[in-house]
Design a protein around this nucleic acid. Structure first.
Lengths: 185, 185
DNA sequence: TAGTGTGTAGACAGATCTGTCTACTCCAAT
DNA sequence: ATTGGAGTAGACAGATCTGTCTACACACTA
């Protein structure tokens, strides 16, 4: 999976530069760890421009989470479609974990960091619900479909966390593949 | 599971009051979201006392993570010992998720929030490694033991994240129990 | 008694944070 | 030509943050 978002932002309009920079820094370094002066410097805009497009830092955080959700979910659905059955999930995770900028799930990270922000918690909940739905849609119809989607989602989140904390993907992927294999067998 | 750490701190020595307050606030609200003036006010100590015991906020964060690890792991091992087989894991999670102060895993939250702090990332990695080991130790000897421990750990982390983001435990527990049942079957 | 350790009160400093504002320029549309 | 939108430069303000410091009191031990 290529970086989300694009890293060459110079030709973008100011708003997109800000959002791309925010996306990169918020995801890599944390929401509160990223100050607006740094966002402004790296976006190549001025403060007036920054605040013209995003009235507050929280607005930018929300825009970042929306963009993240949209881009990630598009990628996820496409990745799941490349192979039949639950093994597609492991393949998708392998691809994601291998990307240079992988640092876990932005929504898990955000919810852990800013539990007092309803917008962040809502975004996280909705993101995960849609991830489960995407997984479910690729499963064969039948009485165990919903349960299988729940279990696969649990496995995926466990693997995401494992890969993030390990700082590398091998053990997470091995465990995920074993688990998916058990569930598919 | 009763709250970690104790909530009635008035009779404790100053250092323990600081650490207990830090534990509560860091876990509930986040590391950076908790400022030292608040810690000081709620600990009932002065600034000199605070800094006499913890030379910096980062030192306090580390002490918090160490205490958290120690208390949680003691509880986890005891909880796993109450029942034979992988179902003990689901029981332990049920107990934890039901506690009033449950807000996910302090180590996942910390790693998501402060990836640039090696001490936080190390603590998270070690915590999860010891959790996997605790799970493994309760499994029967055999060729698939290590793999099973890996899969159960993945399931546990997935359930932890799910319960945290949902803000309630039902779906997480149902999914975990299904998954554990599949693995044990 | 003297020394040490631990506690109190809270003022202070500098850094960093988020957000507000003035003044100006350029471009496109009317 | 005029207007509006979007961009520039960067100063400024107040709040919040982490950490430093003076002065003093009390308890315990040798």
């Amino acid at each position: 999976m290529k970086s989300i978002p694009p890293t060459d932002i110079a030709a973008l309009p100011a708003r997109d530069r800000i959002l791309a920079t925010a996306h990169r820094l918020f995801y890599q370094e944390g929401l509160r760890a990223t100050g607006i002066d740094r966002l402004i410097a790296e976006s190549g805009v001025t403060k007036v421009t920054f605040y013209r497009h995003f009235p507050s830092k929280n607005d930018l955080i929300q825009a970042y989470l929306e963009q993240r959700h949209s881009l990630w979910m598009d990628w996820f659905k496409a990745a799941l479609a490349r192979r039949d059955g639950p093994a597609a999930l492991a393949d998708a995770m392998r691809e994601w974990f291998a990307s240079d900028d992988f640092r876990g799930c932005a929504f898990i990270n955000g919810a852990g960091e800013m539990p007092a922000e309803p917008a962040v918690m809502d975004a996280a909940r909705r993101h995960k619900a849609e991830m489960r739905q995407a997984i479910a849609e690729r499963l064969p119809e039948g009485p165990g479909k919903a349960e299988m989607a729940e279990m696969l989602s649990l496995a995926a989140d466990g693997a995401i966390v494992r890969a993030q904390l390990d700082g590398q993907a091998d053990a997470a992927l091995a465990a995920l593949e074993s688990l998916v294999g058990k569930l598919a067998g």
